[in-house]
């Protein structure tokens, strides 16, 4: 298992980035239910500004459910229920009277499957968030270039911004979706297995993108790929469901999780003994 911890150690451990906005995101005592099914129990986790946190664990342990509670996408499922608090800059996002669309503007999301809007061109896709949220910007072309540049896609698409989003390859589509979520300038970006449908080359590009983005924003990434967690994240949280609701077993700096995990179950998982 030394290779994974080497990868994790090789990264320069950074302090909280001064360029990141806000004071971060805190989850306190989060529970989640789907109908009667208790999917997630008592997860508390802090995400400091400018850090990348990876959530790892076997399928069905509630990682995706957890990040969907963070930007209130959990309530999209009709039978869903939750308990606990999610604090963004110290304010509860579930407090009554909070404008949920504002919350989702500040906490962006990238999905497992690339999902560019089919009726829009590449350029329109990137700027779609502005229209959806009715935001005004002074120079759309600059923003378009900036977002595509940050998502590592500008060079590939700058000559065909009028083409349809569906004409790109899977990896490019996913980077387009990242560019799209950057256009509304979120403080936090949630990524739900963003590379699970992609080839190794595209995966690498997106990991580079994540490292660059983390200088200015807080990133939470769900991944099944432990190499990826080791490569991109500053902190890693291990989730597990043992015939009951999913729980967070352990959270620590990534290097520690992969070299000297405190919990036996974490060790079994990161060393590949199960999962």
């Amino acid at each position: 298992m030394s290779s994974l911890s080497d990868v994790a150690n090789a990264k320069v451990q950074r302090a909280v980035s001064p360029r990141a906005q806000g004071t971060g995101l805190e989850a306190r005592g989060i529970h989640a239910w789907f109908g009667k099914h208790h999917a997630l129990a008592d997860v508390s986790l802090d995400f400091a500004p400018g850090t990348v946190t990876a959530l790892i664990g076997p399928s069905g342990c509630g990682k995706s459910t957890f990040i969907r509670t963070l930007n209130r996408m959990h309530e999209f499922i009709p039978s869903a229920a939750m308990a606990g608090e999610v604090l963004l800059d110290g304010k509860d996002v579930y407090a009554p009277g909070v404008d949920v669309t504002k919350i989702r503007l500040q906490i962006g999301m990238v999905f497992q499957k690339p999902n560019p809007f089919p009726s829009m061109t590449i350029g329109e896709n990137v700027l779609s968030g502005l229209k959806l949220a009715q935001l005004k910007v002074e120079n759309k072309d600059d923003l378009l270039e900036e977002c595509l540049e940050r998502a590592g896609l500008w060079k590939e698409v700058k000559d065909r911004l009028g083409a349809h989003g569906g004409s790109l390859s899977g990896g490019q589509q996913q980077r387009l979706c990242i560019a799209r979520s950057l256009a509304v300038k979120p403080q936090v970006l949630l990524m739900d297995e963003p590379c699970s449908a992609l080839d190794p080359g595209s995966t690498l590009r997106i990991e580079e993108t994540i490292r660059q983005l983390s200088e200015t924003m807080t990133i939470v990434i769900v991944t099944h790929n432990m190499q990826q967690a080791a490569r991109v994240s500053d902190y890693t949280a291990f989730f597990l469901s043992d015939n009951g609701p999913g729980e967070m077993i352990e959270v620590a700096p990534t290097a520690e999780i992969f070299s000297r995990p405190k919990d036996k179950r974490t060790e079994d998982y990161v060393t590949g003994r199960f999962g």
């Binding site: 996408m73 999209f76 669309t101 999905f111 999902n115 968030g129 959806l132 949220a133």
Partner: peptide
């Protein structure tokens, strides 16, 4: 696809 609705909502659309 439900995905598209979620993506739109996640971008701050009503």
């Amino acid at each position: 696809p439900q995905d598209l609705r979620e993506a739109g909502t996640a971008l701050g659309g009503t």
